[in-house]
Simulated scan of single mutants.
Amino acid sequence: MLPEAAQLTASQRQIQRQVLAFITAHRRDGKAAVFALEGDAGTGKSALLSAVFSAVQKQARSTGGALAGTTNRLLVNHNEMLKIYWEVASQAQWLRKADFQKPTPFINARRKADIVFIDEAQLLLSQPDPFNRFRQNNQLTEILKLAHVVVLVLDLHQVTKLKSLWTSAMIKHTLAGHVVERATMTGQLRMQSPAAAAWVDAFASGQLLPLPHPVNYQLRVFEDGVPLYDWIKQMDRQHGLARVLATADFPFRVYTKEPWYVQAGKLRLPWDRVNFTDRPWASQPQTLNEVGSIYTIQGFDLNYAGVILGPSVDYDAKTDRITIDPARFEDQTAFRRRPDGTDSAADRTAIIFDVINILLKRGRMGLGLYAVNQALRQRLLAL
């Protein structure tokens, strides 16, 4: 979840002051000025963005001050993250639920704002998507037309679909001609063990390192899905917010009455269902009996995550590296062909590694792993 501004680290507070100074200096610019905040998963980007947006809205709804009377929005192209921000809004008197939107409705309304904040900007569409009523070339370009200042949070290692595929070159091209200031956040603030975070970084790039044994973090490998699930239930009883997650390697269909299941050895649990409530998926107690995906867990902090690595994630003994088979990845909507032809096997492999990176960095206090493929499972156990 997102902490209060008072809970920010000294480094976060310094960047907060930098962003607020940038906003004040450029709030009347005719062409949108851009502050880009970059960093890996778990480095506190969303917490900082939330704190800055809250400070801006407090000024906007007060009399006097440089930002009084400004109209500002925070956009995020992820349903569950939007719900987290709605919860934040319900706890602050100067925030409103309407302050937070998904990008497409904001763009299609064509109403200008003074300052637009974008969380998880790598999830913005980078191609037309008529199904979601977006027909222009990319969402970042359209948002730049509607604001004096754009503050965006960006992590190019958290891209999950080809239709939202961004590269450094694409970002540079889109921001050409705009005043741009950048800041990079480093240091893992979610995972309580730097050694465990480094192990996950290596794993999400295909490299296998010996498992560390930190005193303040549990990093465990399981021989079957059942003991993994038992461990998660135990951690949930003791600490709360422990959930089972999985890569999208198991069949599922959206909006069906019957559940679709994840099979992990002897464990068989249903996938997460479409969440029509305003509460984030992981904050609902019954979801302890489901398996979460990037669609329900991205942006949410768990205490413990039990991650099932599905059939697309395997191991090559000759190279001692993780291998990826995109053909076995069941989320085929992630791989819908792009009209510009940017959908190589390397792009698809990178997306699956990004999904792994997101899932493995959800737990603050612990991570449990079970690999469906025997070769990978045995190698993990050997580590």
Rank of each mutant, 00 (worst) to 15 (best):
residue 22 F to A: 00
residue 183 A to Q: 06
residue 9 T to D: 02
residue 309 L to Q: 05
residue 283 S to W: 15
residue 73 R to C: 10
residue 225 G to L: 06
residue 197 A to E: 03
residue 223 E to L: 10
residue 20 L to E: 12
residue 8 L to C: 01
residue 46 S to P: 09
residue 266 K to H: 12
residue 114 D to P: 02
residue 179 V to P: 07
residue 242 A to E: 10
residue 353 F to P: 01
residue 230 D to Y: 06
residue 40 D to M: 14
residue 64 G to S: 10
residue 319 T to R: 09
residue 109 A to I: 07
residue 28 R to A: 14
residue 184 T to K: 11
residue 149 V to Y: 01
residue 149 V to H: 00
residue 18 Q to D: 06
residue 315 Y to L: 04
residue 76 V to H: 00
residue 141 T to F: 07
residue 196 A to M: 00
residue 16 Q to N: 00
residue 281 W to A: 13
residue 141 T to L: 05
residue 349 T to Q: 14
residue 358 I to S: 08
residue 66 A to D: 15
residue 356 I to C: 14
residue 64 G to D: 10
residue 231 W to Y: 10
residue 244 V to S: 09
residue 333 T to M: 09
residue 305 A to Q: 01
residue 269 L to T: 04
residue 73 R to D: 07
residue 254 V to Y: 11
residue 253 R to T: 14
residue 64 G to T: 11
residue 5 A to D: 05
residue 31 K to D: 12
residue 112 K to I: 12
residue 50 S to A: 14
residue 200 V to L: 12
residue 35 F to R: 01
residue 323 T to F: 05
residue 105 P to F: 06
residue 114 D to E: 13
residue 320 D to F: 08
residue 331 D to H: 11
residue 229 Y to F: 13
residue 329 F to W: 13
residue 42 G to F: 08
residue 367 L to I: 05
residue 279 R to P: 02
residue 10 A to G: 02
residue 156 L to K: 10
residue 191 M to Y: 06
residue 327 A to H: 06
residue 171 I to F: 13
residue 207 Q to N: 11
residue 264 A to F: 11
residue 51 A to G: 00
residue 305 A to W: 00
residue 380 L to T: 05
residue 379 R to W: 09
residue 278 D to P: 04
residue 117 F to W: 07
residue 378 Q to W: 08
residue 317 A to Y: 10
residue 268 R to K: 11
residue 255 Y to P: 00
residue 214 P to R: 00
